[in-house]
Design a binder for these strands. Structure first.
Lengths: 412, 412
DNA sequence: GCATTAAGTCCAGACAATGGATTAAAGTCG
DNA sequence: CGACTTTAATCCATTGTCTGGACTTAATGC
């Protein structure tokens, strides 16, 4: 039933209107109180009171008086503040750890990456290294007047209860939130743990290829392939937050066996390892991660293999071309299913697939044109991610910001 | 952004609390004001006021004083009223028109069906016949003190804007809402037009196999195959309400061509026509629909063909067995994809698939056990619909009720 | 310099909630 | 059988938030 579970009282009303005013400031900044009153439908009195609260929370601040119109008393424009409130986004990937700190405007104020192979590494060790990275960035943030109020972390896996399964990291039922929380500095909001595809989708939504698209499906292509669906600016998480496992959609029931127990899963056609194997690009020797160790080339192993593949494609290497075509066909078939089930306007290729987009998009679009839209009268457009490998960290930070925006008083 | 679009005022607060109290009465009826105050978190004063409003709307009424506990003044129990407020559910199917009237408790007070082949029939004629059925039931309802406040209609197609595409009815861009609205009696709430799989899912949720299941995927198997996903009691509609087209998920890229332009779609394996063709059950001569004509056997053609198929299966007819096994395998493959993308707890087979459930569930479960849950640690259970061919009409009526419950003042 | 226009603030009033006091209706116990 | 206890329901003063009209402030234009 679509009925609220909690009683609505005067305080609830105020909270909701506060969030409404803040959202409107974010959308139209810089904007005067008078304009806010018009566009929200609240009275000038109420808007002024809410803006005062948001100023006290340091989420908004007065902007330069912009001469905008004609006569009359000029308004005092309000904009999102560039601090001190800040959000921390984290990401664990097979080949690197990443972090970024963003201010309320969404601008990235700090970013850092630690390269190294996290596959098969002890989860506690990986998360300790991530915690160290988080503390370092939080301290750097404090130096430039940023106060991190909350953190979200993107993982290439599925959360079940408070445990995380991430087969491509070798994680099985890892209590990631508990392990990481101990390694993070104190914060006013709780830690959010979510899938990299889900958070990547949110990152693209706010800062990348998803802006303006009403709804879209974001593909996170690495060793595994995840999908995050955004409908009307909201993430669809499925029943238990484990939706979007596109990698194990069946592309060909007579296809090769997959580690999941099935056969012909998309991952066996379009996953990073499968593509590299089919293309004959040799496996780089895994460089074990060293905590705080001197600079490995960020994401070296994976990135250089992709570069090698792109190079071969440029040289019209037959095996490379066939491998990518095979991946494109597989993605097309899987996406026909996904589009029929989820009905997005746009499909965004992220992760490694973004770098291969020029080669993948034609076969995908061909498949979708045949089978993925005849009924609904339109075929979704396919495009590459705009944020590249940053989608997930950016999305993680955006998630924290979204929480602040939904309930600004929580940081006070 | 998860920010509200409209300002929250005192009236909004009252509306939400009214819906909260009504939902709580529906969940716990019969229940006293004191209990409602406890479980909603509102004060007794507020609950009493809200209950008075609901009584004035004739949505709830006093029940028999139930001796329930110990000492003290006994409370006056409140229950959902059995009238006069009522909702009308309608359905257009390839083989019949159906309607039912339910009271606020969800009990079916009236039902009726008109058999006949609606495939290829002029949409205006079909909808006029449906309108006549609706008026007849509304009038019968008035005789027993029921006042129909709103209607929803289930169609085997996809709505695009205010037009409906229903390939299996031969409908192309039919303005169904506009055509039907003219044929319906006046009502206080608007007409809802939705997909039969979506509404079937809601029907099962409230009255059938979905009760208690946190989230589940309902399959509507007729000529086409649709799917409706319910998560936490809410229907997932996709971006434009066109999600759930399971019938055109690709089961085998080298499979037979499909009318949608693709190849190897599930519909070619597990759709009613495909199964019958594979099983060698002859096509019954289509009996054209006659408006108000004397009783055809309800849903005759389709039902008798299914009976014939079941009969052959009982006699261990090899061709029939192979046809159903093929359908089961196809469903299994498609459902691996759907389960990975949508993450339901339960899969409910509806429509024709419900009648074939004994033969379909084993191969489906086998497929899901292999590929549809290893990652998330559990495999969804598969079961047959409890409402059979009534899911969609019941769900349609339930949708209207849900609107009343979400905003009770709308019927005042 | 004064009229005009628009932004922002002030304040009484409305509305729906809260919470404590009161009344009502049963059982329990002497 | 009547006083006491217990629980339900109502009454009423208070509180918090929004509304809407009146007022003040700050600019432009003649």
């Amino acid at each position: 039933m679509p009925a609220p579970e909690l009683p609505t009282r005067a305080g609830t009303m105020r909270e909701r209107n506060l969030a409404l005013v803040l959202a409107e400031i974010a959308r139209r900044q810089p904007v005067t109180r008078a304009r806010l009153a018009e566009s929200t439908g609240l009275t000038k009195t109420t808007v002024a009171a809410q803006v005062a609260v948001l100023e006290r929370l340091r989420l908004v601040e007065g902007a330069q008086p912009v001469r905008e119109g004609s006569r009359g008393r000029p308004g005092a424009p309000i904009s999102l503040a560039r601090g001190p409130v800040a959000a921390l986004g984290l990401e664990v990937n097979g080949h690197y750890l990443a972090a970024c700190v963003v201010d309320p405007t969404g601008a990235v104020r700090l970013r850092d990456t630690v390269a190294g192979d996290n596959r098969g590494r002890d989860p506690g060790e990986t998360l300790a290294a991530l915690g160290a990275l988080a503390r370092r960035l939080t301290a750097l943030g404090a130096d430039i007047g940023l106060d991190v109020v909350g953190t979200a972390v993107a993982l290439p896996g599925v959360r079940i209860g408070d445990r995380v399964n991430a087969p491509n990291l070798g994680w099985d039922a890892v209590p990631a939130a508990a392990l990481l929380a101990g390694a993070l500095p104190d914060q006013r909001l709780g830690l959010v743990v979510d899938n990299e595809a889900n958070l990547g989708a949110l990152g693209e939504l706010r800062y990348g290829a998803g802006q303006g698209a009403g709804s879209y499906l974001y593909l996170s292509g690495e060793t595994g392939i995840g999908a995050g669906l955004v409908v009307d600016g909201d993430l669809f998480r499925g029943a238990h937050g484990a939706a979007g496992e596109l990698g194990h959609v069946v592309v060909d029931p007579d296809g090769p066996a997959c580690g999941c127990g099935g056969a012909g899963c998309l991952e066996q056609y379009a996953g990073l390892d499968a593509v590299m194997r089919a293309a004959g690009v040799p496996t780089a020797a895994g460089t074990p991660a060293r905590v705080g160790g001197p600079g490995d080339d960020p994401a070296a192993t994976s990135a250089s293999r992709v570069a090698e593949l792109l190079d071969r494609l440029g040289r019209e290497d037959r095996q490379a071309r066939l491998a990518v075509e095979r991946a494109g066909r597989g993605l097309g078939i899987a996406l026909i299913g996904a589009v029929n089930l989820l009905d997005p306007d746009t499909v965004v290729l992220g992760g490694v697939h973004a770098r291969l987009a020029d080669h993948l998009i034609p076969p995908i679009e061909a498949a979708l044109a045949r089978g993925g839209g005849r009924l609904r009268g339109r075929v979704p457009t396919v495009r590459a991610s705009a944020l590249g490998s940053e989608s997930a960290v950016r999305g993680a930070a955006a998630t924290v910001l979204a929480r602040v925006f939904a309930d600004p008083l929580a940081i006070g």
